[in-house]
Computed example of a mutant assay.
Amino acid sequence: MKNSHAGIARRVHLRTLSCSAVNQPFFDEIVQLADLEDLHLGWPITAHDISAIGNLKKLRKLKLDSPRNVPDFSVLTRLPALTQLEIENAKHLYELDWLRPLKDRLDMLGIDGSINTSQKVASLEPLDGFAFRKLTLTNVTLRDKDLGPLITCRNLTELVCARTIAPFAEFMRLADARPDMACTWFDPDTWGNAGLRRLS
């Protein structure tokens, strides 16, 4: 139902909420739930103004799936308790500079595309030195093809991505610099013939 969300703002003690098809009126009710700690907004998010999400001072985990109309994500840095952030298939997300205020706060970050749509990202350079332990870059097209900024992410032990995000040599460089980090593509055998051609 189009307005089936109406009244959810009265559920003031909710700590976890997973919902989909979030339009602006629905979103405006959700951000009144001040006790929320875990929020998953599923496909599609049609709300365009998410500035009021800063009201959710206790929010630790946030996942946004297909926020197609959101032009600016910097408001997410105003969530003081946030430790896990996942954004999938964000049409207007290209530069990652806005994430810098979360450098020492995130434990997990996901910037992902969808099954059918690649998430275009300019560079990982803004993530240099981040404190997160896990990073997912599923179906991401990286313009500069450079994984070097992840070398300085000293807590990063798990990288999840497709091999197409960067050349073979970039994965090998990161693997050599960070033997403590796990990534499927650090093993040349997982590249099959493509890896053998690059080794020769």
Rank of each mutant, 00 (worst) to 15 (best):
D189T: 15
L82R: 02
R15C: 12
R163S: 09
P71S: 14
D112T: 14
A194F: 07
L135V: 08
Q84F: 00
R198K: 14
R197D: 15
A21G: 14
R133C: 03
R154H: 13
V75Q: 14
N69S: 12
S51L: 05
S74W: 05
C19E: 05
V160F: 06
L62E: 03
I115N: 13
L62C: 06
S200Y: 12
L17M: 11
I111N: 00
Q84D: 15
L56S: 10
L147G: 07
C153N: 13
N139C: 03
K91Y: 03
L41A: 05
T136K: 11
N139K: 11
D146K: 08
P167R: 01
L93M: 13
A131R: 13
L59T: 04
L147T: 01
L196R: 15
L156H: 08
K103N: 11
R154L: 15
H13W: 03
A162Y: 09
P188L: 12
L147Y: 01
F26Y: 10
D189I: 03
F171N: 02
T152H: 11
P44N: 13
W191A: 00
Q24S: 09
Y94V: 07
E29P: 02
P101N: 10
K145F: 08
I53F: 06
R198P: 00
I111Y: 01
D112V: 06
G129V: 01
V31Y: 01
Y94K: 09
L59Q: 05
L199N: 08
K63I: 12
T138V: 12
N139A: 05
A162W: 08
R60I: 04
D180A: 10
D189R: 15
Y94P: 08
A194R: 07
V75D: 02
P188V: 09
R197F: 13
I87D: 01
L159F: 00
N89T: 13
L106Y: 02
A52L: 11
I165L: 14
L127E: 08
D144I: 04
